[in-house]
Nucleic acid binder design. Structure first.
Lengths: 205, 205
DNA sequence: TAGATTTATTGACATATGTCAATAAGTTTT
DNA sequence: AAAACTTATTGACATATGTCAATAAATCTA
């Protein structure tokens, strides 16, 4: 197994490979293959990725910027996750048994993404066995993240959910609009606003 | 790679291996190793698994029965998931940054479990490379499940959450006590009770 | 089977959060 | 810099869900 030369790390197009490499060594052949199968994208704030027309499932590595996912419930958006740099994001096909629950991915800061199709990922798993180690470890982390989201959203009061977010994702506060944070926390913007002004005066006990 | 002989499937102690085998072939050596590292447990309804004293993280394959996970928030239980046969369950270390959020696993039907330590799992991944394929595929599924839980719990009304559960986990209704379902759905037992009696008269539009 | 315990149902009332609206503050566009 | 637009703040009021309490029904245990 050859190692990815150090000098290549950080060079445009290699961020994703560097991310993998930090988990487990990536051979030069695998690196070349991954690079060949991936596409660099620049996406403006507010844009949606993965248009409804696309049949193919795609995954995105966030080099720079921020992406949120939301579903619509009776026309209202519910943000289900928000992710920044060095995360892999994608929509989960078939989450919804019903049409209502379709997922949208929206870039909420000008972003640089690396796109790769689900099919290419499967090809990588088949060709390069060690990719399964990397994939498995990444999924362990993503599973934990999803558990955390499920936990957060079950906290029984709006204030607790906000406090939990401040504890676990402090970087989001101030970085992205409050309306998305409110939606992610399962409350209205007005409620979040009241909690925040209140908590200026009542510190955590 | 040798295949697990068919006649061994279904025999006591081989349920877990059969589950893996259905995903990807398991060699006889790997099967023997897994079997050696795992323990068969019979657990009575109501019992907790993984006592607080255990330092080691363990995972459990549910051969028969049902297990729920809950955390405590100011003394109140919040059920975070409920799983039945052929699922692997375990607590996630370090979910909580705070002590409050410690997880409990409770068997809610007389159950048969196969226990295996996290350390043994890691050993399996190292010794048997193909285990990473199986692990990766299992985690893909578990990630989806966790996403579904996060989605469910963000639905903005108690009735919608209940309807979603009826859609996605119909087997739970009638099988386990309503109080656990209510907790899982983020509502009080009384609220669930009212929703259920109401929905007898108002069918889904 | 009877008694004890747990779980489910229903009612009256309390409260956190949603809704709607008006305004302010902040951003982007021209 | 002004205009246009988006996002945040605050108030008055509505409502879904929680709380507490009193039974009823179901399940366990001796």
């Amino acid at each position: 197994m050859e190692y990815l030369p150090n000098q290549l790390q950080g060079i445009t197009g290699f961020e994703l490979i560097a991310c993998f490499h930090a988990i487990h060594p990536v051979s030069a052949e695998a690196a070349a293959f991954i690079r060949q199968k991936s596409t660099y994208l620049t996406v403006k704030k507010g844009r949606f990725i993965r248009s409804a027309l696309d049949k193919e499932e795609k995954l995105y590595f966030i080099v720079k910027g921020c992406v949120r996912c939301f579903i619509k419930d009776e026309g209202r958006e519910i943000t289900t996750w928000i992710n920044g740099e060095n995360n892999i994001v994608g929509s989960i096909r078939n989450l919804g048994l019903d049409k209502e629950a379709e997922e949208y991915l929206q870039v909420i800061e000008d972003s640089i993404l690396i796109e790769i199709t689900r099919r290419s990922i499967d090809e990588i798993y088949e060709r390069f066995h060690e990719a399964n180690i990397i994939g498995r470890k990444i999924l362990e982390r993503y599973y934990r993240d999803a558990e955390e989201r499920a936990f957060l959203s079950r906290l029984p009061s709006a204030e607790k959910r906000y406090r939990r977010l401040v504890l676990t994702r402090p970087e989001l506060i101030g970085r992205i609009p409050m309306k998305y944070i409110a939606s992610y926390l399962g409350m209205k913007l007005e409620t979040l606003c009241r909690i925040r002004t209140k908590s200026l005066h009542t510190p955590i006990k």
